[in-house]
């Protein structure tokens, strides 16, 4: 699996601008990842804070030999949002990741990436998008292995699957961070910046269930497909995505890299990732065609 690539997905959370910048600088300098996705996917109100740092970050990432892909918004509702996506799409010389079909349409005819927020569930859709220039497709989170395999078999495009981090499950026009704090979306006071890994949401019985990230709803559990990477690589999945969290992403990336390179085993990897993830529960159920929340397969026997 030495040829498998590790990528760093777009940071989905609202981190302080300087934290955001320093995070990417460090990733550029230290993280063993091949590609870095950069840009706002969740809420258009966030990007003005850190936009100024993007050119420097791109330069530093490229200097470190890392591929840079510019990510775009998942839910585009206003003219202003559309314009911001159009600007990114028109950026010369950069690979852009479309997360709404409107962005994919703007990118038609040149190589581009399709993010997990565009519904690529089958060969027909995959073939259509690759005909229009998509060269890398990150699959929706709820696909099971048999679907991933069928898609991989049908295409020569690069396929990417998220293997680490909270799963982006839903996006809305409504902001649930603002609602939690009894604020309106228009006057949200950017309260989502208080929760660098999302805000835990529990059931009435006190059981952790989901996580709120502004207009996005995520899994409470962290997805971890360490034990499934080998099978996916055999199917033809070429890229594995780490979704940024506040743990040490350099150590996390290194752990997955070592596993891919055969330098360590599942249990060792698990220990490192768990430690860097604040001992959060992991899940991999979607891969097995089960509830996304559950853990199945080899890792289920690790003594959870």
């Amino acid at each position: 699996m030495k040829t498998s690539k590790l990528t760093l997905g777009p940071n989905l959370f609202n981190w302080k601008a300087e934290t955001w910048r320093d995070f990417y600088f460090r990733m550029a300098d230290e993280a063993p990842v091949d590609s870095v996705y950069l840009g706002e996917v969740v809420c258009s109100k966030r990007s003005p804070f850190y936009a100024q740092y993007i050119p420097d970050i791109i330069e530093r990432l490229e200097a470190a030999g890392k591929e840079v892909i510019l990510s775009t918004l998942a839910l585009i509702m206003t003219k202003r949002e559309m314009e911001s996506v159009r600007e990114i799409a028109e950026a010369e010389g950069y690979m852009v990741e479309a997360n709404d079909i409107s962005a994919a349409a703007l990118l038609e005819g040149r190589p581009h990436a399709i993010g997990p927020f565009i519904n690529v569930y089958n060969e027909g859709t995959l073939a259509y998008l690759t005909r229009k220039g998509a060269t890398r497709i990150t699959l929706p989170v709820e696909l099971e292995s048999k679907s991933i395999e069928a898609l991989a078999k049908s295409t020569s495009a690069e396929l990417e699957v998220q293997i680490y981090g909270r799963l982006p499950l839903a996006i809305s026009a409504r902001c649930y961070h603002a609602r939690t704090h009894q604020l309106s979306k228009d006057n949200c006071q950017f309260v989502c910046d208080r929760d660098p890994d999302g805000l835990d949401l529990d059931t009435l019985d006190g059981e952790p269930f989901l996580a709120v990230n502004g207009v996005q709803t995520m899994s409470y559990t962290y997805c971890n497909l360490s034990a499934e990477m080998e099978a996916m690589a055999k199917m033809g999945v070429s890229h594995f995505r780490l979704s940024p969290h506040s743990g040490d992403m350099v150590k996390i990336a290194q752990a997955y890299r070592d596993l891919l390179d055969g330098k360590s085993g599942i249990a060792e990897t698990e220990d490192i990732i768990s430690e860097q993830s604040d001992d959060m529960p992991f899940s991999n159920g979607y891969f097995y065609g089960k509830e996304g929340v559950v853990t199945e397969g080899e890792r289920a026997e690790l003594g959870e």
Binding site: P140, E142, L169, A173, L210, S219, Y286
Partner: peptide
């Protein structure tokens, strides 16, 4: 639906079955 339709996997996260699939 309060989530953007066709872009919601909350149901499958809890049950394995979703609107999309």
């Amino acid at each position: 639906c309060v989530m953007a339709e066709g872009r919601c996997a909350l149901s499958s996260y809890a049950t394995g079955e979703s609107p999309n699939m």
